[in-house]
């Protein structure tokens, strides 16, 4: 893998000293040539290729410098050789007039895409000191070039990404998170609606005459069916995927309210079920739900004769 090197202006070599005769027009012309060369080679071009195009070292240095400044060029270290690659200047155009350190930071953040990059990783990758880095970051944030996104997995960590990007679901936690907070109410409501949907299906086939298997099949619903129902209800502000629906349906399975069956094609079907037993006898007594049952005994202040929970229940 090619490693990025510090992109500082290339200084012209000492040994080559032709007069600076080349004017701006010719420079831009040869610059265009190199640019097109860069654009046609996505894997990058070597020093030699440029040399073939622009033999004059002075001019070459000038072109490279100007390209670097425009942000159309990236330098990589591949083995011992330098490799030049074309870079879309569109993104970088935003930070016109920024200094090189800012550009480096920007490029690292840009590369991280919508997954963002942590401040610590940023420091390691850029090799900048903490104070400089924070200053740069602050500036970029203020200029609305990048933004900070709170990461859902590690509450104290903050990731940086380009301002226009939509954070990845691994960072935001997907539809269930709103600004790092897990929306448990939303999940609960969806859970209830899904259950309601499955119950409705089950109720509807109660008087089905086509035999029990047909009735059971009618009572089952795939995650796509449920997804359609929920989308039509319009209770969700966020756009949910079928996958999200399946997550919710699985919570129903873990609530013991639904059963999941696997079809031959690997899809899941869900069906509302009843618990096998009514609430057991023990929880109908105060002791069954008593928080201090462990401490209860014949002697001591917690005992069945003086138990306040029992007195309350007996009244």
């Amino acid at each position: 893998m090619a490693t990025r090197v510090k992109q500082e202006p290339v200084s012209p070599r000492k040994d080559s000293s032709p007069p600076p005769s080349a004017n701006a027009a010719s420079t831009s012309e040869s610059e265009q040539r190199i640019l097109s060369l860069l654009q046609s080679n996505s894997k990058g071009i070597s020093d030699k290729d440029i040399q073939n195009e622009v033999p004059d070292p002075q001019e070459r240095a000038k072109i490279i410098n100007s390209l670097l400044q425009k942000g159309c060029l990236e330098l990589f270290n591949q083995g011992e050789k330098l490799v030049y690659k074309y870079k879309n200047p569109g993104g970088s155009s935003k930070i016109k007039g920024a200094d090189n350190e800012e550009k480096i930071v920007y490029s690292i953040i840009e590369k991280a895409g919508n997954e963002g990059v942590w401040a610590k990783d940023l420091r390691n990758a850029s090799g900048l000191v903490q104070t400089t880095l924070s200053k740069i970051l602050k500036k970029l944030v203020n200029e609305k070039i990048i933004k900070t996104v709170k990461c859902v997995n590690a509450p104290r960590k903050v990731v940086y990404m380009l301002y226009g990007l939509e954070p990845d679901s691994s960072v935001t936690g997907g539809a269930w998170y709103n600004d790092q907070d897990f929306e448990s109410e939303f999940v609960d409501v969806l859970n209830q609606y899904c259950y309601h949907f499955l119950r409705q299906k089950k109720e509807a086939v109660k008087n089905c005459k086509d035999g029990p298997i047909a009735a059971q099949n009618l009572a089952s619903a795939s995650s796509a069916d449920v997804w359609k129902y929920i989308s039509e209800l319009g209770i969700s502000k966020v756009k949910l995927s079928v996958q999200d629906m399946e997550t919710i349906l699985n919570t129903l399975v873990y609530d013991g309210k639904a059963e999941r069956t696997v079809l031959a094609d690997g899809n899941h079907m869900y069906r509302a079920i009843e618990s096998l037993l009514p609430p057991p006898g023990i929880v109908q007594t105060p002791c069954g739900v008593c928080p201090v049952l462990k401490q209860c005994s014949d002697i001591g202040s917690i005992n069945p004769k003086k138990c306040v929970y029992m007195t309350e229940w007996l009244e």
Binding site: T251, V253, Y254, D255, G256, S275, L276, L277, P278, P279, P280, I282, V283, G288, V289
Partner: peptide, 23 residues
């Protein structure tokens, strides 16, 4: 049936979310 019974006990004692975790 024993699983169900224990799950029901958990629902009553600790709430349905706890039962979800248990299941």
């Amino acid at each position: 049936l024993t699983w169900t019974c224990i799950e029901n006990i958990i629902v009553e004692r600790f709430g349905s979310k706890a039962a979800r975790i248990f299941r």
